[in-house]
Design a protein around this nucleic acid. Structure first.
Length: 593
RNA sequence: GGGGUCGUGGUGUAGCCUGGUAAACACGCCGGCCUGUCAAGCCGGAGAUCGCCAGUUCAAAUCUGGUCGGCCCCGCCA
């Protein structure tokens, strides 16, 4: 046996016990006559003392260096009262070494293997195994593991079957860009890695599995962000014989279960539900963080005759809205306003009108143009939001641009001035999404907001022909702390309706047959009403672990350019591999662009 | 595809605007001293042609252009 105890578990009651420990050497403190080392494993740290009486042992211990992997046999003893370390869980005791085995030596690591670290992220990614050796990182993966276990535990208790879906699937050109995998047996043909198991889980419903889930890896070849990786994990769920409320109810309880089991947080159920329209109007986003204590106010109806031409013009074809940001007017410099203005322009606005509220009322910025009448109405509109030291940011444009700018400012400023209470969580469902959204690139000018199998809201079906953009979807997103952590829908199970949706999207029967024929054919053999939801598992874990980047909860993540700095993927392959696949590289094509 | 930002011993930074001396500091590393430290302490030492390429110049870490890479954002992500 190489160890009898772990490093973190020894306490005063172990005094007198002989133990075998194994782990990494974390610190070495050399006093010439006595040598202390701190031995560390996943469970904690403990001090091991080497005394000079046994010269052979002492001399061997003397050669130890940081991150060497060793085994120690020794006796647990109480430390002298004045040498107790209250900051250490095992600080009351130490292990006096009697035998030492050096399992392996370590080179000097490129950065210290400890929580407080200054190394830049590319260095950490290159030596990911050392990064993962740090206790803070290990904590993230403990959270991840517990979240996965809580998911399985809950869904198992709800009668779900965990079934795996294939990773080599048929490419479907809709949605995100596929990662392709060439076929050797069928030269010139390709598998794709799944963007999600969507179609397969629907087929499980046709198969009568009734309730399915899996922790499925998904792959999307799109550009990355702090919360987006090319491969990520979903908690994928599908249920038969359900309506929207059934899925939402299940998802609420699942989310609450995970949060309680992983971080002990009690989520109040049922969660609030908010329509997409309301979310966009009040928060400028379909994933609002309701912990931010200020929101967007529409003032389109009062700007007529306000004295500021830009508002009056914008109100004719668009909207005028204001974001009052309290308590920061004294902290926002002229330069900062300029930065915000530039940002607003990047986000599509023509500019950013501002003003502030001081002890004397409206002040600065565009307030000088306003009529007294408007000031009065505006003041009334602001209600209890009218108090000094507030910055007012205005958007006057088409609704989507105003939402984007003011919604973006809201989250950005809340983050920058640290006005979010991070001990709380904000969870809600956003519902009544539009079924379609405008899309200039597509044939009919519309594209599905979710995916083409989403059921329209029953009452809106008659609108499909006359005003498709007004049709609401039977779809829902779960938003946690401003992140979309799950999304789902009730699916279409009636072939006629499905055909109609395809037609609206400009997908011909022929095309539909070619792309999704296997699904449509399956639906001819008895398909139950069904629907489901899929969680972005990594994002959920990121939030529960209190991290800002999804990379911190993925063991071996890619950089924002999609490279793995540790193993060097993607890489070139042998000519022989390509020959076998019937593939020729034509790099000139990509160079030309 | 676009915008921003960063790149200097093993690690993190300073120096760069205003070109010119041994490129400075902290941590780490190596050696010495030290029998109760806990991020031990003290003394000494090694280690960087400043991401890469080209240009300007008598002279480039410093100025210019390009390029590579990290991070953040927009587009994109049914």
């Amino acid at each position: 046996m190489l160890r009898t105890h772990t490093c973190g578990e020894l306490r005063r009651e172990h005094a007198g016990v002989q133990v075998r420990l194994a782990g990494w050497l974390q610190h070495r403190r050399d006093f010439g006559g006595v040598l202390f080392i701190v031995l560390r494993d996943r469970y904690g740290e403990v001090q091991v003392t080497f005394r000079p009486e046994n010269k052979e042992l002492f001399d061997l211990a003397y050669t130890l260096r940081g991150q060497d992997v060793i085994g120690v046999f020794g006796t647990v003893v109480m430390r002298p009262p004045d040498a107790i370390n209250p900051r250490m869980a095992t600080g009351e005791i130490e292990v006096v070494a009697e035998e030492l085995k050096i399992f392996s030596r370590s080179d000097v690591p490129p950065f210290p293997v400890e929580d407080e670290i200054t190394a830049m992220e590319d260095t950490r990614l290159k030596y990911r195994y050392l990064d993962l050796r740090r206790p803070v990182m290990q904590k993230n993966f403990i959270v991840r593991h517990r979240a996965a276990m809580a998911t399985r535990e809950f869904l198992n208790g709800e009668n779900f079957l965990e079934i795996e879906t294939p990773y080599l699937v048929r490419s479907t050109p809709e949605g995100a860009r596929d990662f392709l995998v060439p076929s050797r047996n069928f030269s010139g043909k390709f598998y794709a890695l799944p963007q999600s198991p969507q179609l397969y889980k629907q087929l499980f419903m046709v198969a009568g599995m009734d309730r399915y889930f899996s922790l499925a890896r998904c792959f999307r070849d799109e550009d990355l962000r702090a919360d987006r990786q090319p491969e990520f994990t979903q908690i994928d769920i599908e249920m038969s014989f359900v309506e929207q409320d059934d899925v939402i109810d299940l998802a609420e309880r699942l989310t609450a279960h995970i949060m309680f089991k992983v971080v002990g947080y009690s989520l109040k159920l049922p969660l609030p539900r908010m329509s997409y329209d309301e979310a966009m109007r009040r928060f400028g986003t379909d994933k609002p963080d309701t912990r931010i204590p200020f929101e967007i106010i529409d003032i389109t109806d009062i700007v007529d005759g306000c004295g500021f031409g830009v508002f009056e013009n914008a109100a004719k074809n668009g909207v005028v809205r204001v974001l009052p940001v309290p308590d920061i007017a004294d902290k926002v410099s002229r330069k900062k306003i300029d930065q915000l203005t530039k940002l607003a322009q990047e986000w599509g606005a023509k500019g950013l009108a501002t003003a502030k509220i001081s002890e004397n009322g409206f002040e600065g910025g565009i307030s000088k143009f306003w009529t007294d009448d408007f000031k009065e109405k505006f003041c009334e509109k602001l209600g209890d939001k009218f108090f000094p030291n507030t910055i007012l940011l205005f958007g006057a444009d088409k609704p989507d641009i105003v939402s984007k700018v003011l919604g973006g400012m809201r989250t950005m400023l809340a983050d920058e001035f640290d006005i979010i209470n991070r001990s709380e969580h904000s969870a809600l469902f956003v519902v009544d999404f539009p079924l379609f959204e405008p899309d200039e690139d597509s044939e009919r000018g519309i594209t599905p907001s979710h995916h083409p199998f989403t059921m329209p809201v029953e009452d809106d079906i008659p609108l499909l022909d006359e005003n498709p953009l007004a049709v609401r979807a039977n779809a829902y997103d779960l938003v946690l702390d401003g992140y979309e952590i799950a999304g789902g829908s009730i699916r279409i199970h009636k072939p006629e309706l499905q055909r109609k949706i395809f037609n609206l999207l400009g997908i011909s029967d022929d095309e539909a047959q070619k792309k999704f024929g296997f699904l449509l054919e399956a639906f001819r053999y008895g398909v139950p009403p069904h629907g489901g939801i899929a969680y972005g598992f990594d994002r959920l874990v990121m939030i529960l672990a209190g991290r800002k980047s999804i990379r911190d909860v993925i063991a071996f993540p890619k950089t924002t350019a999609g490279q793995s700095l540790m193993d060097g993927a993607p890489s070139e392959v042998d000519a022989e591999q390509l020959r076998e696949l019937g593939i020729k590289i034509d790099i000139q094509n990509t160079d030309d662009k």
